[in-house]
Simulated assay, not measured.
Amino acid sequence: MPGGVWALALALMLLDPGNAQECSPGGHRVLQNPHRSVHFDSLHLQQSATQDLICDHSLAAGWYRFLIFDRPAEMPTKCVEMNHCGTQAPIWLSLRESETLPAPGEIKQLTACATWQFLLSTTKDCCLFQIPVFVRNCGQFFVYLLQPTQGCMGYCAEAISDAKSHPCSSDEIEVEGDCVRQLSASLTPPPPGRPEVVVELIESRVFCRCAFDVPPTNNSVGFIIAWSRLSSQEVKEELKQETTVRAYSLLELDGINLRLGDRIFCMASIFFLKKPHVKSLAIESQEFFAGIKLKPELSTISEDGRAYQLRIESTIPVVCSKFSELDPECKISLKLKTVNQDLVFFWSVYPCRSW
C-alpha cells in the first residue's frame, strides 16, 4: 500500500475509532495456513516443496486475522528464528521499550520485523527489514492491517487460547494453547493408520501418493513420511523423506528416482508440532508394484492349436497427449517369443487412453 494511502487509512480510523468495521466478519480476511506457525520448520520445504514456501510479496493490502488449525492466533512479539513460519525470513511484531499491544477497542501502529542472516555470517539480524503494521484489538482477537512484503518473507502466527487469561494449574502445561496434564503431554502421539500407495495423475504427470488416516488428538501434529523401493538384491533403498503438516506425500514416477517396475513402500509417523522430538511409531505400507503385470505370471503355452488367455494389467496410467489418441505411435506393444529362438509369433497392440 503506497505511503499516502496508508496514512489516509490510519487517519480515517482515528477519526472514527468506534466504528471498527475491520472487527466484523466481512471486515477482514483470514490467514490460516498452518505453516505460518512459529513452531513450523521451513527447511524441508526449501529442499522438496519450494512451491509451498510462504512469500507475502503478493499479499493484498488489508485487514487480516490469524488462525492456526482453526485456533485463534496472533503475531508473535519475540524474535523468530530464520526458516520458520513456512518461509525463510519470518516476520514478527516488535514491541519496543514502553510499547504494548492495543487495549480492547484500541488501534495502534507498531513495527513488524523480518529476521535474516546473511550467507557466511555467524549472527542473525532479528530486525533487518521493518514494516509498519496497524493492530486493532477487537476484544476476543486482534486484526492486523498488513501490506505486501518487498521480497519472499512471511508473516508469522502463534496459536493462543483462554490459557492466557486463565493460567494452567501446577500439574498442567500449555501445549498449542491448551492446558494438558504433564503426564498426557509427555506421551507419544498415536500412530497413523496403515499408509496406502495409490497412483494419481497431475497435469499429465504420474505421481504415487502415500496417504493415511490420522487418529484424533488434542495437539497439533505434523508427519514424517519416507519413501523406499526394493532393490534387485531385495534391500530397501530410501528415495525421499518429507516432514509436512499434510497427511500425504507425493513422489513422481519420473523414470529416474522412481521407475517402471519398482516395488515401492512408504512409511509414516506422527509428531507434535510443539515437540518435534516426540514421535509416534512408524507404520509402513504394503508393497506397491509400479508397472505392468501379466496374469497368470507363469504359464506354459503350447503350439497345439488351442487358445490361451492371458490378462495384462497396468497399475499406473499410460499417458498419451489428447492430440495423439489416434496416433499409431501412442500404444503399448507386447511380443511373445519361443523358448529357443527370437522368432516372434504373436503381436498384440494396446492403444493408450488419454488421462
Rank of each mutant, 00 (worst) to 15 (best):
F134E: 13
V135W: 06
V135K: 12
V135R: 04
R136K: 09
N137S: 13
N137I: 11
C138N: 11
C138D: 07
C138G: 12
C138F: 13
G139S: 04
G139W: 00
Q140E: 08
Q140K: 12
Q140D: 13
Q140Y: 07
F141K: 03
F141G: 00
F141T: 01
F142N: 09
F142M: 07
F142P: 12
V143L: 06
V143A: 02
V143T: 10
Y144E: 02
Y144D: 00
L145F: 15
L146P: 03
L146S: 03
L146E: 05
Q147K: 07
Q147C: 09
P148W: 11
P148C: 06
P148R: 09
T149Y: 04
T149W: 01
Q150V: 14
Q150P: 05
Q150F: 10
G151R: 12
G151D: 14
G151P: 08
C152G: 01
M153T: 12
M153E: 08
G154Y: 13
G154L: 08
Y155I: 00
Y155F: 02
C156H: 05
C156F: 00
C156V: 06
A157N: 04
A157G: 04
A157Y: 05
A157I: 04
A157F: 06
E158Y: 11
E158A: 15
E158W: 13
E158N: 14
E158R: 09
A159Q: 09
A159D: 11
A159E: 15
I160D: 07
I160P: 13
I160T: 11
D162N: 10
D162P: 04
D162K: 02
D162I: 12
A163S: 15
A163E: 10
K164L: 07
K164G: 12
K164M: 15
K164I: 09
S165N: 15
H166N: 02
H166T: 11
H166I: 03
P167F: 05
P167V: 06
P167C: 03
